[in-house]
Design a protein around this nucleic acid. Structure first.
Length: 549
RNA sequence: GGCGCAUUAGUCAAGUGGCUAAGACGUGGCCCUCUCAAGGCUGAGGCACGAGUUCAAUUCUCGUAUGCGUCACCA
């Protein structure tokens, strides 16, 4: 009888489930190896949270061995966006967390367990739906949106659980004649699961992060096949992760509450239930409220935001590692030179509750990441960024490559590296005044500190340019400034000045500041000796002249 | 509202039935210093609340509160 119903509802489905079971054989895995997946919708937006979960999938698979694949969940045609897949792949590539199987571009894919795009798997889903119908485990439902709304109102009035279940499931016990009649009169329908669950019974399941979880059994007759013939997420999850032989489902914890349904689906279909690992979301605080980072409200929810801001991929990655395993930070300090892949990541060390996203901390991680880079790397990555977001800077960096690298190398070697660059956009502040093209064309304001008298400034600069020699080593260079300072009535040493301030006009630092400001217009710069040396005497002179105008 | 999960400083967090509850970011101060950055030292700041078990609870149990997630033909 159910067989007849199944043929009536899905006449075009000819294959049997055994065909697919045969086609997608269990994977040949070594002991301990895992199969994981990332299953995004191609909505044209890569969320930081998705990136985070994907990264965890990738690391988990790397440490255990096995396969990590990408499945495109495009069963909701309304939300789909053009080139959504490319966008996802680009982000995964940037972050070096590309999958082993699945889509490799908009239309192609690799791997033996495909198609990896759900819209191409329609026939597979329908075969399994038919299989359930044949066994009396699924049935057609003719209820409309209005019917369901009415049902909900009714249930709310009665103060019972809302939903399509038990006696509220009107279409559950339709006779085959009734069904035939409705179909013949052209009524639209969807397919629902005939849930055998009992809400008063509990199921227990162990989650890889959250530990033992207990829920009531699912008794909702959820929709498994939509009116467009495509499956709902839940059904597709069961079919795909079974046929693709997923061993560990690592996903965001918004799915925790669907566990009873998912376990039920796997069980009813005769599949082995995979291990579940639910990752807590990344949160944001706003006006005292916490919530998940929101695609609509928070620009920082987009992975592309960080690229634009000029925060290096490596920094975002390390920040996310910190969130995932907080001992990563210590490891990083102890292993400055090691590659991130050497860190021993433990999934069960992840926090069960969501962490607030901390942009300040991200920048701190970032400046340390950049501090570990060589001047050449900073140059390369910075230039890449500038080409997209700061054209003028990019042009100059490109034209004065060696000069720029030398500037970036100031105070970059040795133990105490300066950390004044947290993102590539900071390069502008660090570099612009060192390019004559900008320095002589932009109106920089000279704000001197302690010495403000024009004649005195002119006097210092004139005398200084006479004694400056590019070939001086640092000690000689500084001694010259000290001598100049002394001859003009300033203390050679700051300490001397502090001891007897009334004896001096100021100290060597004040004189240095005059040189610094005249040279750069800034009171805060990297090492003055290096800056002078990089500019050379002629340029120094031109800059002094400009300052004295 | 039902169901589920969570709760250690402003933030991320380690941790244990029993020393003074790690560390990082941020924040205050000091030192170093030609400026800034960096670095060093140092200060402030925390186990949500109430019961119970126990010689002893931040840790175990139960309640309360708060927060988060979820209750679609979206994933």
């Amino acid at each position: 009888m159910y067989k007849e119903l199944a043929d009536l509802l899905l006449p075009e489905v000819k294959k049997d489930v055994s065909y697919y079971e045969e086609l997608y054989k269990p994977r040949d895995l070594k002991e301990g190896e895992v199969v994981t997946r990332f299953a995004p919708s191609p909505t044209g937006f890569v969320h930081l949270g998705s990136l985070y979960v994907t990264m965890i999938n990738r690391i988990f698979t790397n440490t255990n061995g096995g396969v990590f694949f990408l499945r495109i969940e495009d069963t909701d045609k309304k939300r789909e966006v053009e080139n959504g897949i490319e966008g996802i792949l680009e982000a995964l590539k940037d972050y070096n967390i590309l999958p082993d199987e699945g889509a490799i571009n908009e239309s192609e894919e690799k791997g033996e367990y495909g198609p990896y795009k759900q819209s191409d798997r329609k026939e597979i889903y329908q075969t399994y739906v038919k299989y359930l119908i044949e066994q009396g485990k699924a049935y057609p439902c003719f209820c409309h949106e209005e019917d369901l709304e009415k049902l909900r109102e009714e249930q709310e009035k009665l103060k019972v659980r809302t939903g399509y279940y038990r006696s509220f499931a009107k279409c559950r016990n339709l006779s085959i004649e009734e069904i035939k009649q409705k179909i013949q009169s052209g009524e639209k329908y969807i397919i629902r699961l005939k849930s055998p669950g009992d809400y008063d019974r509990k199921i227990k399941i162990k989650d890889g992060i959250k530990g033992e979880l207990e829920f009531p059994e699912n008794d909702q007759d959820v929709v498994i096949l939509k009116s467009d013939g495509l499956p709902t997420y839940h059904f597709a999850h069961a079919i795909d992760d079974h046929l693709m032989r997923t061993t560990h489902v690592i996903r965001g914890d918004e799915w925790v509450s669907s566990i009873p349904l998912h376990v039920q689906l796997f069980t009813m279909l005769g599949f082995k239930v995979p291990k579940y690992i639910h990752v807590a979301p990344i949160m944001k605080e706003e006006e005292g409220n916490k919530r998940k980072l929101s695609k609509r409200k928070d620009p920082e929810a987009a992975v592309s935001y960080y690229t634009q801001q000029g925060i290096p991929v490596q920094a975002v990655k390390e920040y996310l590692y910190n969130l995932a395993n907080s001992n990563f930070e210590q490891w990083r300090r102890d292993n400055q030179d090691k590659d991130i892949s050497e860190f021993e990541f433990k999934i069960n060390k992840m926090s069960a509750s969501g962490a607030l996203f901390d942009h300040v901390k991200l920048l701190d991680v970032s400046k340390n990441v950049i501090a570990r880079m060589s001047a050449e790397e900073v140059y390369q990555l910075g230039l890449e960024w500038a080409k997209k977001y700061d054209n003028e800077l990019a042009t100059l960096m490109d034209e004065y490559k060696d000069y720029t690298i030398n500037l970036l190398n100031i105070e970059r070697t040795g133990k105490k590296v300066r950390k004044d660059i947290a993102k590539w956009s900071d390069l502008r502040d660090v570099l612009e005044y060192m390019y004559d093209e900008i320095f002589f064309n932009k109106d920089f304001e000279y704000v001197y500190q302690n010495i403000t008298d024009k004649d005195e400034i002119a006097n210092i600069l004139k005398q200084y340019i006479e004694i400056y020699d590019v070939n001086d080593d640092k000690d000689t260079w500084f001694n010259k400034i000290k001598e100049l300072a002394e001859s003009l009535g300033y203390a050679r040493e700051v300490k001397e000045y502090k001891a007897n301030p009334e004896q001096y006009k100021g100290h060597v630092g004040d004189v240095s500041m005059v040189i610094r400001v005249a040279l750069t217009s800034k009171q805060m710069t990297p090492d003055l000796y290096e800056l002078l040396k990089n500019l050379g005497k002629e340029k120094i002179q031109r800059r002094f002249e400009k300052a004295l105008k």
